[in-house]
Computed example of a mutant assay.
Amino acid sequence: MSLDGDTSTTGDTAQSNTAYGNKAFKRSKSHFADRITADAADGWPVEAGRYRLVISRACPWASRAAVSRRLLGLEDALSLAVTDPLQDDRSWRFTLDPGDEDPVLGIRFLHEAYDAREKEYPGGVSVPAVVDVPSGRLVTNDYQQLTLDLATEWTHLHRAGAPDLYPEALRDEIDEVMDGVYRDLNNGVYRAGFATGQEEYEGAYGDVFRRLDLVSERLAGRRYLVGESITEADIRLFTTLVRFDAVYHGHFKCNRNKLTEDPVLWAYARDLYQTPGFGDTTDFDHIKRHYYGVHAGINPTGIVPAGPDLAGWLTPHHREQLGGRPFGDGTPPGPVPDGEAVPEGHRPLP
């Protein structure tokens, strides 16, 4: 099974990808890596209304796309489908929609779009996924490239005042920061959580907290990871940090300390959470129900913890004292579109 983003496998999802010879978790590359570009080099042109973005709000990889889409104001150009946080052996389900069917694609399970693209594809069904609405075929599940293309190839469809999330002058530095964060933290928490040997677990655990210490040091005197405004690097770090205390600290045994115990990272995460596009796309209920309900090999009882208390996410962070402008020369996104709001009770409200 592939584990590009989060897959459809029930039970101990990622352990199906463990190389048991060395007891180490390994993440597969995206199988469907077509790009949607302005020049249509891969046969998929950027076109308003043609594609549908399928996400799970539980998945950190999919959450990147949700944040980027909102910051860039692509809601009218790229429609959104949100799956149930729990999968079964038929893949991600559209049970949150009337009749348990996606109203645009007319399918009940995401695997149907994968099958339309490649019959009997042997890998996992992962999110985020972009589907071509006219044909019902999967276009891409390349979660690493997707958000970069939204920022650079979809520019003529961006809202007025959209931020530049991948500024050309800073790309080398952004890429360097993102590479370390991905290797040691975004993927490192999974390597720790799904390790089947003590040595592999401790190695991943060490990577996670070494990287957290490095980014904490980097952010002590600057508001954002690279430059003076939010970039792709901040989005990728945020989607792991926002899950840390709720899931990774206990469920994945990354328990040296909680996010709330690092003053710099906790303030940084709150700053982003309180920025439109971040907190308003975060669903703590889906996050907890997915991880604790699907990973039966780690949590065989399926009990979902009642905590942690989420009220702290709305407390003052004082990061504005470091300067910087969240959207650079741009402006904040507008209100969350009708039908896309995270349900009441799934995140803290003022």
Rank of each mutant, 00 (worst) to 15 (best):
R236T: 00
G307D: 12
T240I: 02
D280L: 07
E173W: 00
E176K: 12
F278W: 14
V189C: 05
D271N: 14
Y190K: 09
Y292W: 14
R211D: 05
Q274S: 08
A306H: 09
D179Y: 14
G206Q: 04
G302R: 05
L170I: 08
G250V: 11
G193D: 01
D283R: 05
D245N: 12
P167E: 09
V264P: 12
L225N: 04
T301L: 11
A204V: 02
E261L: 06
L185F: 15
V242E: 12
N299P: 11
T260P: 01
V242Y: 03
A306T: 14
Y248G: 06
G293Q: 09
A220S: 14
V189M: 05
I174Y: 04
E199D: 14
A233Q: 07
T301F: 11
L214E: 15
M178E: 15
V264S: 12
F244N: 00
A269R: 05
R243E: 10
L185T: 03
G188V: 03
R210T: 15
D175V: 05
T275W: 10
Y292G: 09
G227H: 04
Y248L: 03
G277A: 05
P308E: 05
G203N: 13
V247T: 02
T301C: 08
A267I: 08
R210Q: 13
V242I: 15
V264L: 07
D184T: 06
N299K: 08
F238C: 01
R243C: 04
A246L: 09
A169G: 13
D285T: 15
G221F: 00
L225V: 02
P308M: 12
D280T: 11
D213E: 14
R289Y: 07
N187R: 10
H249M: 09
E232V: 11
N257M: 11
G277L: 11
V177A: 08
P263T: 08
R218W: 04
E168K: 15
A192M: 11
D172T: 14
A169F: 01
R210C: 00
E200F: 03
I298N: 07
R210V: 12
L185W: 02
G206I: 09
K288I: 00
Y291V: 11
I235T: 06
F284C: 05
R256H: 10
V189I: 13
L170C: 04
I235Q: 04
E173R: 02
N187M: 06
N186D: 10
R222P: 08
Y248C: 04
T281P: 06
D271R: 06
A204I: 00
R243P: 01
D309L: 01
R236K: 09
I235C: 04
R256G: 11
D271K: 07
R256I: 03
G197C: 13
